[in-house]
Design a protein around this nucleic acid. Sequence first.
DNA 1: TGCCAGGGCGCCG
DNA 2: CGGCGCCATGGC
Length: 302
Amino acid sequence: MSAIYTSGALEEKNSYDGLPCVVIPVHNYSVGQTFDCGQCFRFDRVESSPYLCEYEGIAFGKYVRFAQNYPGELVIINSNASDFEAVWKRFLGLDTDWEAIRGDLMTKCTSDSVMVRAADLAGGIRILRQDPWETLCSFIISQNNNIPRIKKIIASLSKNLGRPVHCSDGVTRYAFPTDTELEAAGEDMLYQLKTGFRAKYLYDAARRSANGLVDYGFIEESDDLEECADRLCEIKGVGPKVAACVLLFGFGKLNAFPVDVWIKRSLERHFPCGFEPAGLSPYAGVAQQYLFYYERYIEGRS
DNA sequence: TGCCAGGGCGCCG
DNA sequence: CGGCGCCATGGC
């Protein structure tokens, strides 16, 4: 039995509040882990949900909610079958066999390794395939910053500069601004929106992206992670870590291995003799995300 | 008050 | 190339 979602297995119905939704059979899936593991900043938990776990937000200009009561079933609210096929299936990574990846990683580590414990704890995580431009900006903003404030800044940029999305629940939300919209806003405006020293970086990213100087097509096609990172690092304020995050969370390059302060501490603690991400190829980035979740979990998630 | 946050830049040796 | 101070801001 394959763990990959197969077309036709989904069920269309209405959600508890009357919105159209689809129910997807999944395996060892966690909405909570996926949307609270620091890869995506535009989804918030719905506290009043009748589901055990529900997150809502905007992606690709669409309002959507992801909910579940158990690991074998995912509910996508404000969606239908064709919408799922066109947008959410790829976004959620449901075209990928994550249990096979997790199994592959676990065979490459000793059973007492922190990596196995992390993969055990955080195995419900899926690496999202987010919009590359939005991912680029999100991780420029992330530098020397914490997750709650990153979310605030991104929400503020969207509200002030992004296109309004009139949602089916009656609330107006906002899409993340396009590169053109961000460039038109200007560096001063970006600074006023509390981006701090990152304003000039965001503006440079917007200018380059809006003028075709970021070769998304090349990065999409290439398997050369170094070359892809080099292209992204041409943007001011983009270094190895931000580039790795963009490649992992925006382009689905599952071997990209971002090293932030959490991962650095973790590797120093658990691998004092040194650590080689290459040993986890070609899914080192997935292992990294398990580890990131694990470290934040045992610290009590600040 | 000082430290830290999904870092990178500029400068120095 | 490796190390280090700095960059804005807000929460603890």
